[in-house]
Design a protein around this nucleic acid. Structure first.
Lengths: 236, 236
DNA sequence: CAGCTTGCGATTGTGTCCAATCGTCAGTAG
DNA sequence: CTACTGACGATTGGACACAATCGCAAGCTG
């Protein structure tokens, strides 16, 4: 399997070693951008948190210049918003933005999956099943979120298009906060629905059936959106 | 009508005054990014062109720092690629990337249109018809490309979601080069097909019919992709 | 002559200093 | 007491100087 852990928009050249820590090598601005992305996705930096350039620079042992470039990159990812002379803050999606992000995912994730089916190997499918077993067994909400994410991104292993993967990942990222919050309050019934849908999805992938795969996936994402929308307390 | 000319990812606050020139106000890095985007989309900077920081800085009367931030932003737009210690170049899409970009557009442009229909006014529709008349009347390929782009983006006037518009615009941008090249060799038959499809689209928008609007639009984009793919000479 | 090595020039990456701008909080007038 | 105003501090934006890295070409070696 290729890159199940492509959480960040890694540039070609460096592998996403399986760690949750940002890469240690390469140019500062990219390392800093990775650090920020990881911290935001992990929830260490909550939405709305102010990001002061000097503080980040000091913490990572560099000067403000690479930090500023990193902030521009992460801004383009939609994870922070930068206002002139006012500073950067961790981005916060309101309900409408959340809703639209999910509707976008309902359309492009299935495309990535269809393209992935053309290249996916039996080993990839076996890895998917193993991941899904882990998803089902874990009891930790944080670990569930991470594994669920790994599982879905792993279904796109066979998709080779950088732009599409970057776009798919982008909307996974901007909505990550809400999945994390939801995982804290999901019940057994919700878990079993997810399990059922994932198993259907794996089966369609195993059969290399793009129609079923797309149908199951878009339905899965749609139901997730609807379920999340039923919890208004997640949106301030 | 709101922002028919939203070619670049304008940040909130500054209006996209109808000019083709980048904005003159605001922070340097954004102005420079706008300049680069506009120059690339106009074809003044051909794919593969090397972008040296100092040259850009000198031309725009600033130092390299804001240029570097601008390059990071435009890199995130997919319009340039930056390699460490090696420099930035205007991005070039190969055939597969072109194909995928269009398939993405076939899925998300209709979504933007459907969301737009909920807010679009009769004045907006009238503006669309006027634009389409201009499209039909022009004989200049360059002007045709610009007007066709304006027309389509104008159909998304009612879509208020920034992320979606930014994503839609992104793929318009990365594929702009091929539309420009194709416009040079399009024939009357091609033009009349486009006219017909645009008129159908306007009618569906006028009726606020999301099903027809999406069907016509995705078909229009799909046929454009297929037509472009029939000209391998466009891809090196 | 081919292939490798090395050194130089060009270009990018980073650190430091100064200028521009924004938010806030006193202070004052109404 | 409220609303406005102005000045100050904090923070970001920009310019310059220097270090790090890469690509290429000249030169050496077999």
């Amino acid at each position: 399997m290729r890159h199940p852990e492509a959480m960040n928009d890694q540039q070609p050249g460096q592998d996403a070693t399986d760690s949750l820590e940002p890469a240690k090598a390469g140019v500062s601005s990219r390392r800093i951008a990775d650090y920020l992305r990881t911290a935001i996705l992990n929830g260490e930096l909550a939405p709305g948190t102010r990001l002061r350039q000097e503080e980040i620079a000091e913490r990572l042992g560099s000067s403000r210049i690479p930090v500023r470039e990193a902030l521009r990159m992460v801004e383009a990812d939609g994870l922070v918003t930068v206002k002139s002379y006012s500073g950067a803050r961790v981005a916060k999606l309101d309900f409408n933005e959340f809703d639209t992000a999910y509707r976008i995912r309902e359309r492009i994730d299935p495309l990535a999956l269809t393209l992935s089916l053309q290249e996916i190997t039996d080993e990839d499918v076996a890895r998917l099943e193993a991941l899904q077993t882990e998803v089902e067994e874990t009891t930790s909400p944080d670990r569930f979120v991470a594994l669920d994410r790994q599982f879905h991104l792993a279904t796109y292993t066979g998709c080779t298009d950088k732009q599409l993967l970057a776009t798919v990942t982008r909307f996974w990222n901007t909505t990550q906060h809400y999945r994390r919050a939801y995982a804290q309050l999901i019940d057994d019934r919700g878990r079993s629905i997810i399990t059922y849908e994932h198993r259907l999805l794996i089966d369609a992938i195993h059969r290399r059936d793009p129609v079923d795969a797309e149908r199951f996936l878009s339905g899965h994402i749609r139901r997730t959106r609807i379920t999340l929308a039923e919890h208004p307390e997640l949106f301030d």
